[in-house]
């Protein structure tokens, strides 16, 4: 598959709370032909059967915190940095696709992945809701960041409409919208809350 070229001066990021659909957005971008950087430092497992699409074994946040993550090397490619890591983005030029999901589903999925039974679930929920809100406000206010907010639940219920939003945000002639829509895998939607 021929990959298109993104702007080499921009860092492209897929973000959102952990378990909010960031891996699915990475899959969608890759399917459409967008350059996506990841390695096999965290292998696919039951929580993410198609892989995590991450760098640094998912621990990119630590490197952003101490300023050692080489963002320059990843310009012109999409990388995954989850919400908390965005707090540590240095000044630059960024395009961020930020994924949201029903918070109950996120917590269910987190607990399953970490094999924990959260006895303070309501407090945890509140903390992650606040983190999500704080980060969204922060990235919207920064002048060096362009943001698209997408919703995992909406992508799964109406892929065509919602993937088109990503397509329009990227504004690239040679990205394959049909393949992006086809990449939305409803079978992976296992933590649904009705």
């Amino acid at each position: 598959m021929r990959l298109m070229e993104l702007d080499e001066n921009i860092n492209y990021i897929v973000s959102g709370l952990e378990r909010s659909g960031t891996s699915m957005v990475m899959q969608v971008l890759l399917a459409g032909g967008a350059p996506v950087a990841f390695n096999k430092s965290r292998l696919p497992d039951q929580s993410n059967p198609k892989g995590y699409y991450e760098l640094e074994g998912g621990k990119i946040i630590n490197k952003l915190m101490d300023g050692t993550f080489p963002l320059n090397e990843y310009k012109g490619k999409f990388i995954k940095i989850t919400s908390y890591g965005l707090k540590y983005l240095p000044a630059g030029d960024y395009k961020i696709i930020y994924s949201e999901r029903n918070i109950g589903e996120i917590l269910d999925s987190m607990e399953k992945m970490a094999n924990i039974n959260d006895t303070n679930r309501e407090e945890t929920r509140e903390s992650f809701v606040k983190l999500n809100s704080m980060i969204k406000n922060y990235i919207r206010e920064r002048e060096d960041i362009e943001v698209l907010i997408v919703n995992y639940n909406n992508i799964l219920s109406e892929p065509s409409i919602n993937i088109k939003k990503i397509y329009d945000f990227l504004d690239l002639a040679d990205i394959n919208l049909e393949k992006m829509i086809d990449a939305v895998d409803r079978e992976l939607y296992r933590q649904r809350r009705n």
Partner: peptide
Amino acid sequence: SEEVFSKEDEEKVKDRLRALGYL
């Protein structure tokens, strides 16, 4: 309360990220 992401919230989030292998 929605607006303030306190130090306590941050510690809770960091604990969870460690449990998930993100930190």
